[in-house]
């Protein structure tokens, strides 16, 4: 069974522990970080989790390729809420919480793109493998990341390059000298 790696970044220990306790009832979720601040999360993070449950005060912060879910502890404005793919309320039940995560993970962020249109190093790695004809599963194995993260990278690549087809991405990789056409 696929287990999704979850990070909780929430200043309130009561809220954070409550979320961890509720999610621990579901085998599909593994809490890999539970920290009180974004800086603590950034200093501890070795690789991107699949999802980050994030306090609303960090709405405008970048959490890399992870699906970004807001923890709503108070009324928030629409601009803040728009920064997240979904939000969970402190009044959510365990089942509601698990469902929100599942739905958000099923449809990786479309609104969570970085403002930069430069491909990250990881996105370039994924792009090169896409151009070489690797499947999502093969890319995940090659790069030691989850298929979900590969899908998320691919969505970011499409968003940044404006190119959807594998053939088009291959040409992009060649034109940008990411790959030697002899390798294809």
């Amino acid at each position: 069974m696929k287990r999704f790696r979850v990070a909780i970044v929430e200043p309130s220990a009561i809220v954070a522990e409550g979320l961890e306790s509720m999610l621990s009832r579901y085998a599909e979720y593994e809490i890999v970080y539970n920290v009180r601040s974004l800086s603590e999360y950034q200093s501890q993070r070795a690789s991107d989790p699949d999802v980050v449950l994030l306090a609303l005060q960090y709405a405008h912060e970048d959490v890399g390729q992870a699906t970004k879910i807001g923890i709503q502890t108070a009324i928030a404005d629409s601009d803040t809420l728009r920064q997240f793919q979904a939000t969970v309320s402190i009044y959510s039940s365990a089942d509601e919480l698990a469902k929100i995560l599942r739905e958000a993970l099923d449809s990786p962020a479309d609104t969570n793109f970085s403002d930069s249109h430069e491909l990250s190093e990881r996105e370039r790695d994924v792009l090169v493998l896409v151009a070489k004809g690797y499947t999502t599963k093969e890319i995940a194995t090659e790069l030691f990341i989850s298929p979900h993260t590969v899908i998320s990278h691919r969505k970011n690549i499409v968003h940044k390059t404006g190119i959807r087809s594998v053939a088009g991405l291959t040409v992009y990789a060649v034109l940008n000298k990411l790959i030697d056409s002899e390798q294809l």
Partner: peptide
């Protein structure tokens, strides 16, 4: 595919 050409 048509959009891909334009993007390139």
């Amino acid at each position: 595919r048509t959009n891909d050409i334009a993007s390139l």
